[in-house]
Structure formats: structure tokens, C-alpha cells
Design a protein around this nucleic acid. Structure first.
Lengths: 113, 113
DNA sequence: CCGTATCCCATGAGATACTG
DNA sequence: CAGTATCTCATGGGATACGG
């Protein structure tokens, strides 16, 4: 997540950009829609505003999401996937399928987080 | 990584089992070979023994790797992928390809970690 | 509405030394 | 060889309050 790191393996480099607890879920939420800050938060009720802001800034820095600010009051900010961001969706789709098949016992639709 | 957690989304459940800094790299190292503890360590020079042990125990607990102990002196322990472990390799392959294409600037073959 | 600012805790993770 | 045992530090992450 930090800048200017170097990795000997592409897998490690990829994990750094799209890994962690929240980034895959944020990218997943944006996979086929542009969302406002509060809308992402609604899709991920367990994340705090602080973490959502932090993760979105990193995703923006790594060119995975676009951040569009409207000069309005009250403020309006929209997030969407860049081309690079869209390119990770097939990976997340596989991950989702894998999770459904192999982690069934850990999945409960009535539980947050 | 902890036991008995529940997730509302398969992606989150999957991330918990195969995410983090080291697990993808360990699984990747085992993708087409059985390796001893020290051999995995040789492929991942940046990991400490302590972390390698910890991650391998979690992978074993989640049925992603087999651990085979030989009753010899000096000790010999071999690690290999289970069927479940093998099933994540296609995901890591995609991740590797993605990293090569999109994280080129962060990859340096002469650097550890 | 979209964030910051603080404070705080749990976990990840490194370094080093030691052992059956 | 394949780990443990300590100790330490950095980061991730949560809770809450506040602000333009």
C-alpha cells in the first residue's frame, strides 16, 4: 500500500495494490456502477468512514478508481472504476466463485462484515 | 485468518483464507512441487521462520496445504497443495498476469521481498 | 454529504536467540 | 532441520467527535 516499494514477484506487487480487507470489496461494489461515497458505505456497512476514505485514496493513487468531485453544496463525489480497475474484476469474479464453493460454511447473509 | 468468523460476501471469505502478504506467495511456490520447510524459505527469502510457520499452520487448518512429517533425525517435513489448494492456482495465475501487466514499475528482479 | 482529527487496540511482521 | 520463544515496532483498523 505504500509508495515506491519494489517486489520480486508480480503476485506480491498485485497483492499490494488490490489486496487487504477492503479494497477487493470496494472494487467489487463499483464493478458495474458509479457510486457516491455514502452509497459505497451503504454497500459495505461494516467499514468506517475513516477506512473508506483511506482505501479510496490509495485506489485513486494507484489509478484503480476515478474520483469526481462536483462543486455543489452539499458536496457530491462520485467514484468509478478506471480501465485498470475494470481489469481486476475478472480476478474478483473468480475469487467470488471460489469463495462460494470452498468457504460456504463461513458465509452468512445475515451478518455484517 | 481467525476461526469461526462469518462473512456476508464470498469475496471477503476468500480473502480471509488466501489473502495477506505471504499466503499467495506460499501457495504459488507450491503450485507444482512438494517442498520442505527450508525449501519454501529459500524461495521466499524475505519471510522469517516465525511467519512461515504461522502461515503454514493457517493454510493447513483451512485445508489448503498438506503437512507430512517424516519420523527421521534430522526432521523432515514436506508441504504440498491439497485439492482445495490447487483450486486457487488459476486465480493466482490471473493475479500474476495482472501484476506483470499493470505493476511493471514496482517489479524488480534483483530485490528481495 | 463527505470527509478530518484523535485516540486506541489488535494483529502483522521483523530480529534474534534457542532447542529436540 | 524445523521449528519455539521473546521482544519489539509498524500498520490496519475501530470508535467517536467534529467541520466545511
Amino acid at each position: 500500500m505504500t509508495e515506491n516499494k519494489k517486489y520480486c514477484c508480480p503476485v506480491a506487487a498485485a497483492i499490494d495494490e488490490i489486496g487487504g480487507k477492503w479494497k477487493p470489496l470496494i472494487l467489487w461494489a463499483l464493478k458495474d456502477q458509479t457510486l457516491r461515497f455514502s452509497e459505497i458505505n451503504r454497500e459495505l456497512p461494516a467499514i468506517t468512514q475513516r477506512m473508506l476514505t483511506k482505501q479510496l485514496r490509495e485506489l485513486e493513487r494507484d489509478d484503480l478508481v476515478n474520483r469526481k468531485v462536483y462543486a455543489e453544496v452539499p458536496p457530491k463525489v462520485e467514484y468509478s472504476l478506471t480501465a485498470k480497475g475494470k481489469s481486476v474484476i475478472p480476478i474478483l469474479k473468480l475469487l467470488c466463485d471460489w469463495g462460494e464453493e470452498y468457504c460456504k460454511s463461513k458465509i452468512c447473509l445475515n451478518v455484517l462484515e
